[in-house]
Amino acid sequence: MNSSPVVRIWEKVGTAALYGSFGLASLITIFPFLWAAILSTRSREEIFTPGISLYISNHLADNYAELMNTSFPFWLNMFNSVKITALGVLFSLAFMSMAGYAFAVYRFKGKNLIFGIFLGSMMVPPVLSLIPFALIIQFLGLMDSHLAIWLPFTAVPFGIFLVRQYVVTTVPLDLMEAARMDGAGEFRIFWNIALPLMRPVLGTLAIIQFVFFWNSFIIPLIVLTSAEKQVVVQVLRSMQGLPNSPWGAVMLGTTISILPILIFYALASKQMIASLTSGAVKG
């Protein structure tokens, strides 16, 4: 393909502009975090001085000390968050992949009805379900347990819906028929054939569920009643008791609590993209 020098220069300019604008957009989206990280190094008085400036101050150690000095055991709460999120994501992937797969691939009685009910239940704001939810948890004797925080949300219709959409577009039914003819059991088909093809959506789902569990606040608020069981979100929120919040420490805590999500996102998205470009799908 012959392209004149002019076209080539335009291409370069275009690419540069593209990368440049995306870079700018990225800065806009991650600005609040940079801001929070910068604020973690400042003392509260410095945070309240007028004007916007980007300097980094030297109160990081003080803020850390203050973070450790609350009535919450910060690192234990971090661990709680990690534990709940890990279990939640694991079981979410298991349950939701199975359910989404079932909706996408099989025809069975009541399929549309059940799917419709699932979808419909997503449409009602959960503002009011807090009290009945608490009642159920109390009834099951699960108050103040971590199980109550992740288990109920490992099969939410939203994730099932996402998996279904993905499987419909990517998993070819003939592949499955072939395997069935070979005598493979349904679960074998799911496990060996469909699941590897579903890796990108599972990666996406993992990230979304990770964020959901990590940031969940209302449920832990109602269910957990001892300081040792609290999750890190609660710690940070509780420190924000206006008007006396130790903002530097809060910002530091916020920055620390974002890190696991970033790490997980980096890992998961690599998984996603890697499997996509390995050319698994053949027309």
Binding site: M98, A102, Y106, I114, P132, F133, I136, T154, A155, F190
Partner: peptide, 20 residues
């Protein structure tokens, strides 16, 4: 098979969504 695949989701739904 589909019912089997759906069972965890349905059970959780019945417990935590229907009652509310």
């Amino acid at each position: 098979a589909p019912y089997g695949f759906l069972s965890p989701a349905i059970i959780l739904f019945l417990i935590f969504n229907i009652f509310p």
